[in-house]
Design a protein around this nucleic acid. Structure first.
Length: 483
RNA sequence: GGCGACAUAGCCAAGUGGUAAGGCCGUGGAUUGCAAAUCCAUUAUCCCCCAGUUCGAAUCUGGGUGUCGCCUCCA
């Protein structure tokens, strides 16, 4: 099967074909850096990170660019609230962004261009749009004339007449720039400087870029006139991406992107998680409570385009599911030596049938949930076989097959960004020594022989509190393992 | 008001014409002094409703109902 993707532009799935053979130019609309990231941002970053990994695994060389929008009203507001500058605010939240993504295990993009570093490209685009008659100046601002671009609305599937019929009252009443616009849905490419705000020189006077234009400029500068994949949150489809298309395509006459992919929103109690509703959980709050890998699993279990409901129950479920997957991933590190196989990865050992099934699932519009079923199938078996080893039973799967399954599981998990810490389980710096534990276990056995179950249970609870699980086997034998 | 998406067990969720993946939770049994851990087994006669197409539909068509998103900043 070949990779098929759902394209917002055509509202249908189609076979994925790149412009240049085996190369993908991919752009993700990143964040505006005025606050800590929340779970919604995590979903976007996680999903497109895994898509990137999957494309690379599929044999493409991916040039993945994600921007930071670091000029914006919200950043300026935050700066004045905190009595500081735009630069200080954006620096703080860019650093926070990288910390959060590191914890989530999101890979680095190839570059993170910033609006403030792209002023020449932005001004050049605005100038060209003006020259070609798509833009007009008004009192130091410059606006894009949407009526000049016949295809305006093609991405989000709307018509100017319909928009006007629906929203005209509100638009005119609430838009302070309305009086400068020739048409209500025209949008600002360049905004005249306001007192005390950062500003750059331009042919239209001192000012700063509008929202949208920076992405058109950064795509052009970093990836060229037409790219393969443009991604972002579904809420950016309109107006942000629609406006990017209008800006870029009016200038170049070429499609901005061949494939437009959008991820679904995070829902909380039936409502979208968003800043304006205040119903968001920041990534750092979230990671204080949940394992980053459980969060990743929670996100990847849902089809990327569908809304996902965030609630305690779902996260708890994902946490338990991750425990299962982790058991499978740790199998080789825990029992490989005992079984006589190496823990270094060896592609020749991968199970082609399992990998083929994984690929068939995921090739269908990045159906990660379908792919995960394969991982669980393997992990469940390895977990079971690992337990048999701990309980000193007979393995049902041959050593060769176990090694093959484990190698395959690690390989597939890596594509999806799952990683279990193999150190974790061997580290018990402040814990009891093996001798201490054995002594306590013997004490408990003695107590039980004397029917002093209270004492026996006390020792058991004490050890459990240290993460040591006792297993009473038939015949009065007790073995133990570190949780 | 306009545009769009979705509706599968207690929860999450895959499946897009051939008779319901997977995960979580739960249940029964084995084991145990009781537990824990583990093992074995088990959990939708049916896919929001109605009508139609078809030998056959969760899957296609038409009509409802419901939920959500975008139309203003938003991942």
């Amino acid at each position: 099967m070949t990779l098929t993707v759902y394209n917002t532009l055509t509202r249908s799935k189609s076979t994925f074909q790149t412009i240049e053979e085996n190369k993908v130019r991919m752009y993700c609309c990143g964040i505006t850096v005025y606050d800590y990231c929340h779970l919604g941002h995590a979903r976007t970053c996680l999903v497109w990170d895994v898509v990137r990994r999957y494309l690379e695994w599929s044999g493409y060389e991916v040039n993945y660019i994600q921007n930071f929008t670091d000029i914006d009203d919200k950043i300026l507001n935050r700066a004045s609230q905190e009595g500081t500058s735009m630069e200080v605010v954006s620096k703080k939240y860019i650093e926070a962004y990288f910390e959060d993504m590191e914890r989530l295990g999101v890979g680095k993009a190839n570059a993170y261009p910033r609006a403030t570093h792209t002023l020449d490209g932005i001004k050049r685009l605005v100038y060209e749009l003006e020259q070609k008659g798509f833009a007009y100046p008004a009192e130091g601002d410059v606006y894009y004339s949407v009526q000049k671009f016949p295809e305006y609305g093609k991405l989000s599937g709307r018509k100017l007449e319909d928009m006007q019929a629906g929203a005209s009252g509100r638009v005119e009443a609430e838009d302070p720039e309305a009086s400068k616009k020739q048409y209500p849905f025209d949008f600002a490419l360049w905004k005249a400087a306001k007192e005390g705000e950062p500003a750059w020189e331009s042919p239209w006077g001192n000012g700063r870029p509008g929202w949208h234009i920076e992405c058109s400029a950064m795509v052009r500068e970093r990836l060229g006139e037409t790219i393969d994949i443009h991604v972002g949150g579904g809420d950016l489809t309109f107006p942000h991406h629609e406006n990017e298309i209008a800006q870029s395509e009016a200038v170049t006459g070429q499609p901005l992107a061949n494939y437009w992919l959008h991820n679904g929103m995070i829902i909380v109690e039936g409502k979208k998680m968003s800043k304006s509703l205040g119903n968001f959980t920041t990534i750092r709050e979230l990671l204080d409570k949940y394992d980053p890998m459980a969060v990743r699993l929670f996100i990847l279990q849902a089809q990327y385009r569908k809304p996902v409901d965030f609630n305690q129950q779902a996260l708890a479920g994902a946490t338990n599911a991750w425990e299962t997957l982790k058991e499978g991933l740790l199998f080789g590190y825990q029992y490989g030596k005992k079984l006589g196989f190496a823990t270094s990865l060896d592609a020749s050992l991968y199970d082609k049938e399992l990998i083929g099934r994984f690929k068939d699932a995921v090739d269908d519009d990045f159906n990660f949930a379908g792919g995960l079923a394969i991982l669980f199938e393997i992990a469940k078996n390895l977990e079971k076989e690992g337990n048999i080893i701990v309980h000193e039973g007979e393995n049902k799967t041959s050593k060769e097959e176990l090694e093959q399954q484990w190698q395959t599981l690690i390989h597939l998990a890596t594509i999806l960004g799952f990683k279990a810490n193999s150190e974790e389980n061997n580290n018990h710096p402040n814990g009891l020594s093996d001798a201490d534990i054995n002594a306590l276990v013997q004490q408990r056995l003695d107590a039980r022989k004397n029917k002093d179950y209270a004492q026996g249970d006390r020792i058991r609870d004490e050890l459990q509190g240290q993460g040591i699980t006792l297993i009473d086997k038939p015949g009065g034998v007790t073995i133990w393992n570190r949780g």
